[in-house]
C-alpha cells in the first residue's frame, strides 16, 4: 500500500502539487491520468523518492519514507525511456537490483530466470538492450523493476515510445504481469484509453490536484466535473438554447454533456430528445465517421460506426437525437 498525506511539491516558486492526499490499496493498479504539465510525473517521482516534497508525507506499507532515498524505498520504477543499462546484458539488467541488495548468487539466478520467463524473454537473456525491439526493451524494464520483489511498482508513461499496435499489445502484457504478481502499481499516462483499459482506479489530475478518483467505468460515465467529463471524451456540453431545442429541462448548477457516440443521426428508433440539424463537416476515420452538425447556434460532434450504405453529406438536413440516460449532468 502507498499513501500520501498533505503532500506539497514544487520547483522553486512554482507549486506543482498542493496538499495531496492519496491512498493506493495493496495489489491495486492505480493510474494517474492527466494532460502534460498536470503534475502526474512529478507525483510519481515524489513517490519514488527522486523529488523531495516541500511538505507532507509519503508512506509505503505503513512506513514513512518521505526522507528515505529511492534506493532504500523498496520500489520498482519503470521509466518512460526504459533507462536500460546499455553495457549490461538483459539478464544482467534484470539481476542488477538483486545484486545491489547483495542477494546470494543462487537466488539471483533463480529470480532472473523466473522474471525472464514471466516477461517472455527467456531466449534473450544474453542479448544487449541495443539489440532488442522497443517492446522487448519495455519488457526488460518491467522485469528488471520487478525482480527485487518491490513493494510498489511505479511506471512513468512506459508505453509512450511504442507504436499504436505494440502499445495495445503491451497493455495486455502489463495487465497479465500485474495480475500474476499482484504488485501494487501506480501508473502514469496521458492516454485515456490506456488508463481505462489497465486500471482498477483512475485519478484524474489537473494542476496537481485530483479531480476525481474512481474506477474507470465511473470516471467515464459519471465524471465528477466538467473538466473530467471533457478530458474523458465528452466534448458536447449543451448550451441553454440547445437544451430548449432538444426539449431538455435544465438542472440548477449542472451542465448537460452528451458523448459524440451517444448522439444518433437520423435513425429509425425514436429518441427521447431530438432536434433538427444540418451536417457541416464529415470526416471518414475508417471504422467510424465523425460529423460536425449545427443545431441552432451550437455545433455538436457526433461519431457513428462507418457504414457502406447511408452516409450523410455536408449540407444534409438531418434529425439528431439521444436518450435521457445518455445525458451526463455534471457540476458546472
Amino acid at each position: 500500500m502507498i499513501s500520501t498525506q498533505k503532500l506539497t511539491v514544487g520547483y522553486g516558486e512554482t507549486t506543482v502539487i498542493n496538499g495531496l492526499d492519496l491512498h493506493v490499496q495493496a495489489g491495486e493498479f492505480l493510474t494517474l491520468l492527466g494532460p502534460s504539465g498536470c503534475g502526474k510525473s512529478t507525483l510519481l517521482r515524489t513517490l519514488g523518492g527522486f523529488i523531495q516534497p516541500a511538505s507532507g508525507t509519503v508512506s509505503i506499507d505503513g512506513r514513512d519514507v518521505t526522507r528515505t532515498d529511492p534506493e532504500h524505498r523498496g520500489i520498482g520504477f519503470v521509466f518512460q525511456s526504459y533507462a536500460l543499462f546499455p553495457h549490461l546484458s538483459v539478464a544482467d539488467n534484470v539481476a542488477f537490483g538483486l545484486k545491489a541488495r547483495q542477494e546470494e548468487r543462487k537466488t539471483v539466478t533463480r529470480r532472473v530466470t523466473e522474471m525472464l520467463e514471466v516477461s517472455g524473454l527467456s531466449e534473450l537473456g544474453a542479448a544487449f538492450p541495443g539489440q532488442l525491439s522497443g517492446g522487448q526493451q519495455q519488457r526488460v524494464a518491467i522485469a528488471r523493476a520487478l525482480a527485487p520483489k518491490p513493494s510498489v511498482l511505479l511506471m512513468d508513461e512506459p508505453l509512450s515510445n511504442l507504436d499504436a499496435e505494440l502499445r495495445v499489445k503491451m497493455r495486455s502484457e502489463i495487465l497479465r504481469i500485474h495480475r500474476e504478481l499482484e504488485v501494487t502499481t501506480v501508473y502514469v499516462t496521458h492516454d485515456q484509453e490506456e488508463a481505462l483499459a489497465l486500471s482498477d482506479r483512475i485519478a484524474v489530475l489537473r494542476h496537481g490536484a485530483v479531480q476525481q478518483l474512481a474506477p474507470p467505468h465511473e470516471i467515464y460515465y459519471r465524471p465528477a466535473n466538467a473538466y473530467v467529463g471533457q478530458f474523458m471524451g465528452a466534448t458536447n456540453s449543451l448550451t441553454d438554447n440547445t437544451c430548449r431545442l432538444f426539449a431538455l429541462a435544465p438542472v440548477a448548477e449542472r451542465t448537460p454533456f452528451v458523448r459524440p457516440e451517444r448522439i444518433i443521426l437520423g435513425g429509425d428508433e425514436p429518441r427521447a430528445h431530438t432536434a433538427a440539424a444540418v451536417v457541416e463537416e464529415v470526416t471518414f476515420l475508417g471504422p467510424s465517421t465523425s460529423y460536425t452538425v449545427g443545431v441552432g447556434d451550437q455545433r455538436l460532434s457526433v461519431q457513428e460506426t462507418s457504414r457502406n450504405g447511408t452516409v450523410w453529406h455536408t449540407g444534409s438536413q438531418v434529425s439528431v437525437g439521444f436518450d435521457a440516460t445518455d445525458v451526463m449532468w455534471v457540476e458546472s
Binding site: F77, A83, P148
Partner: peptide
C-alpha cells in the same frame, strides 16, 4: 535514477 530505484548506492 533506475539504478537508485533498484537499490544501488
Amino acid at each position: 535514477d533506475a539504478a537508485r530505484s533498484l537499490g544501488a548506492g
